[in-house]
């Protein structure tokens, strides 16, 4: 079994910030917008290095999305930054009409996604954003799992022409993917080969999936772990191939099971290779205040929950 090591816990939002800093130096078309959350989004360096390409819009997210759409006309590549809730739900129609339908090259970069935002509570913990964004025609939806992957994704989306939703988080989490990775939009990453069960995970749940695979291995169960960083377009080929091999699948995400990665996987499998599936996700509920670890435990979003779901789905084969 392949071993992954945490090279030092870091927040994924810093991966975004450092990626943006690098883009500032390498791509003069990159512009950045922020709605009174520069520190939280780690956009300070970009602002400092390129004040003329940085736009503080104040607490006015709808205006920010509209401005970003306008900035693509004339060739700029706008990156917007605010919390995931205010990046999606707050501005859905602005994204729908001015970005997605109009086919604009806007990168909507969303921090503090999911329940691990912690103590601020449910008003800030969006668990519906993947669903909202994946339903928009033409929108690419990415949820990265660690610092290195988030940085790589930030660089990659600048080179891709089209609207992108990039989702990342607040807490420090294990950093375990290679520093020098190239990020391929829409391409699944096989982290672990296995034969008994497929675990497909995105975002913060990927590390938990690896921990779960270790526990399962100790029990003599061979788990295949696939990191789906791009929920849309989904790497259907990779998922179908693995499901055909293991004959059962667990999906894991820090999101509502309605509208999330799990449902996208279920659709692909229903069409191509019907397979028993268990969903590690929140079950149609809002979050609440608490520490990230407490919340992951309470809402069944950790390695333990993935192990249980794996045992359950194996029994359903």
């Amino acid at each position: 079994m392949k071993k992954y090591t945490n090279t030092g816990s870091k927040d994924t939002r810093s991966g975004f910030g450092d990626g943006l800093t690098q883009l500032g130096q390498t791509n003069e078309n990159v512009v950045a917008l922020c709605a009174d959350l520069i520190g939280s989004l780690k956009m300070d360096d970009f602002k400092k290095n390129h004040p003329e390409r940085f736009f503080q819009v104040g607490i006015a997210e709808a205006n920010m999305i509209g401005m970003a759409a306008g900035m693509t006309i004339g060739g700029k590549i706008p990156f917007t930054g605010t919390f995931a809730n205010f990046s999606t739900g707050r501005v859905y129609d602005q994204i729908r009409q001015s970005v997605a339908y109009s086919g604009k090259n806007v990168k909507i970069c969303a921090s503090h996604a999911g329940i691990t935002l912690g103590e601020d509570g449910a008003t800030h913990q969006i668990l519906e954003d993947i669903g909202l964004m994946k339903m928009l025609p033409g929108m690419t939806v990415i949820n990265t799992c660690d610092y290195n992957q988030t940085k790589a994704a930030t660089l990659a989306i600048a080179d891709y022409d089209g609207p992108v939703y990039l989702r990342f988080g607040r807490p420090k989490v294990a950093n375990f993917t290679p520093e020098d990775q190239t990020f391929e939009i829409g391409k699944a990453v096989h982290l672990q080969e296995g034969t008994d069960v497929t675990i497909v995970a995105t975002g913060h749940l990927v590390w938990e999936a690896l921990l779960a695979a270790e526990t399962l291995n100790e029990q003599g169960i061979s788990a295949e772990v696939i990191n789906i960083h791009t929920i849309k377009p989904l790497d259907a080929k990779a998922i179908i191939a693995s499901a055909n091999k293991t004959k059962c699948i667990v999906t894991a995400e820090e999101h509502n099971y309605l509208g999330g990665l799990g449902e996208s996987v279920a659709r692909v499998l229903a069409e191509n290779a019907p397979t028993p599936q268990e969903f590690v996700a929140t079950k149609d509920t809002f979050g609440e205040s608490g520490t990230p670890a407490q919340l992951m435990e309470k809402y069944g979003l950790n390695a333990d929950a993935i192990v249980k779901a794996s045992l359950k789905v194996i029994a359903r084969k």
Binding site: D120, G121, Q294
Partner: peptide
């Protein structure tokens, strides 16, 4: 701001 509290963030 504690888990299970009525005093949410």
């Amino acid at each position: 701001r504690l888990l299970n509290s009525r005093l949410q963030g």
